[in-house]
Simulated scan of single mutants.
Amino acid sequence: MRRTKPLLLGSATAATAALLLALTPQLSAGADEGPGAGTRDARGSRDAPAAAPAAAPLGSPVAENGRLAVCDTKLCNQDGRAVQLNGMSSHGTQWFERCLTDGSLDALAHDWDADVLRVSTYVQEGGYETDPERFTEIAQRVVDQAIERGMYAVIDWHMLSPGDPNANTELAKRFFTDMAARYADQPGVFYEIANEPNGVGWASVKSYAEEIIPVVRRHDPDGVVLVGTRAWSSFGVSDGADEREVIENPVDADNIMYTFHFYAASHGDEYLRTLSRAADELPVFVTEFGTQNYAGEGANDFAMSQRYLDLMREKGISWTNWNFSDDHRSGAVFREGTCNGDEWTGTGVLKEAGVWIRDRIRE
Rank of each mutant, 00 (worst) to 15 (best):
P53Q: 00
M179W: 05
D222V: 14
C99Q: 03
G348A: 15
D242A: 05
G38R: 07
D111M: 04
L282I: 09
D239W: 09
N168I: 05
T121A: 11
K74Q: 12
Y263R: 06
N195Y: 01
G59S: 11
M159R: 09
A17N: 10
W95L: 08
A14P: 10
P6Q: 11
V189M: 09
T121V: 13
F135D: 04
P25S: 11
Y122H: 06
G348E: 15
V123C: 05
W319K: 07
A109K: 00
R307E: 05
E196R: 03
I357S: 09
K173W: 05
A22G: 13
Y294S: 13
D41S: 13
I138L: 12
G201Q: 14
S120H: 09
K206G: 08
G199H: 03
G127H: 01
H267E: 14
G34W: 07
G199W: 06
D222Q: 15
L117G: 04
F285P: 01
G316Y: 02
F334C: 09
V200A: 01
R182M: 00
L282M: 13
S207Y: 04
V355S: 07
G38A: 09
V189R: 04
G38F: 05
R217F: 10
C71Y: 10
D359K: 12
I213E: 05
A18P: 04
S60Q: 05
A241N: 09
G80M: 12
M304L: 12
S90C: 08
F289M: 14
G341E: 07
F235Y: 10
L160M: 11
F190H: 00
E281F: 06
Y122Q: 08
Q78A: 15
D326E: 06
L21C: 11
R118C: 07
A55E: 14
D242P: 07
R244N: 14
R358P: 03
V83A: 00
R149I: 02
L282K: 02
E314I: 10
A203W: 12
A139H: 12
I212C: 08
Q78T: 12
A181Y: 02
A31L: 03
A51T: 11
L23E: 14
Q94D: 01
A332K: 08
Y208W: 05
V225P: 07
R182I: 00
G201E: 14
P187F: 13
G346T: 04
F285K: 00
P25I: 11
W319R: 04
D113K: 10
D342G: 12
A15T: 13
S266R: 05
D178A: 11
R46D: 13
R277Y: 03
Y183D: 06
C99N: 08
D242S: 06
E64I: 09
R307T: 03
F235Q: 03
W232E: 02
E297P: 02
Q26M: 14
E288N: 13
A114F: 00
V142F: 02
G240R: 09
P197S: 11
E336V: 15
D102K: 08
V286K: 00
L68A: 04
W356R: 07
M151R: 00
G341R: 07
I361N: 01
M159N: 12
N321C: 12
G92S: 13
V215P: 02
G36Y: 03
G36I: 03
P6H: 09
I138W: 12
